[in-house]
């Protein structure tokens, strides 16, 4: 826990749950959310601004299907000596096409995703990372089929 979670009120949780369900492309979408929750539009707007400001909402708006606009993604794993993780992460993270990067508990300990306009660009980024770090022990696990992408955290269940 980061502490921020404890600051969420019951009303915040209901609002975030409703927003995770999605809003419609209508003239006043936050008015519709407000009606669903039985509060005013002004409150919804003020609360959403506060939650975004605090970083609890990472982004708000259209969730784009990157593949439909010509982007391609992959998941890569690397074996990095523990003491070199900060330096190697610096090299990887410098590419704006890297969207996620995590240390995981496995002999392949660095796992990152790349989203780019072409596989050629992905190959180029991987080549650069190998050149700059000298680490070639790497997996490139291209996605061949997507069964699901639907992030929805149950904020109102048992806690």
């Amino acid at each position: 826990m980061t502490g921020l979670e404890k600051e969420l009120t019951e009303a915040d949780r209901q609002l975030l749950s409703a927003m995770q369900q999605g809003f419609a492309p209508v003239l006043r979408p936050f008015q519709e959310i407000a009606e669903r929750l039985g509060v005013t539009e002004e409150k919804v707007i003020a609360d959403l601004r506060r939650l975004k400001e605090k970083g609890i909402i990472r982004r708000l708006g259209a969730i784009i299907d990157s593949r439909k606009i010509g982007y391609t993604g992959t998941l890569c794993a690397m074996q990095v000596p523990a003491e070199r993780i900060p330096e190697v992460a610096g090299v990887i993270n410098a590419f704006p096409e890297i969207t996620h990067n995590y240390v995981r508990e496995h002999e392949y300990n660095i796992w990152f995703t790349i989203l780019a306009p072409s596989t050629a660009r992905i190959d180029k980024i991987l080549k650069r990372i190998q050149e700059q770090t000298g680490i070639t022990n790497m997996l490139n696990l291209s996605a061949t089929r997507i069964f699901k992408i639907r992030v929805n955290f149950d904020l109102e269940g048992e806690r």
């Binding site: 826990m1 980061t2 921020l4 979670e5 969420l8 975030l16 927003m19 995770q20 369900q21 999605g22 809003f23 419609a24 492309p25 979408p29 605090k54 970083g55 609890i56 909402i57 990472r58 982004r59 708000l60 708006g61 259209a62 969730i63 784009i64 299907d65 992408i149 992030v151 955290f153 904020l155």
Partner: peptide
Amino acid sequence: IRRLSVALRQQHV
């Protein structure tokens, strides 16, 4: 566009 929605910072919730 898949949906109009929010993405939450998972650690913060």
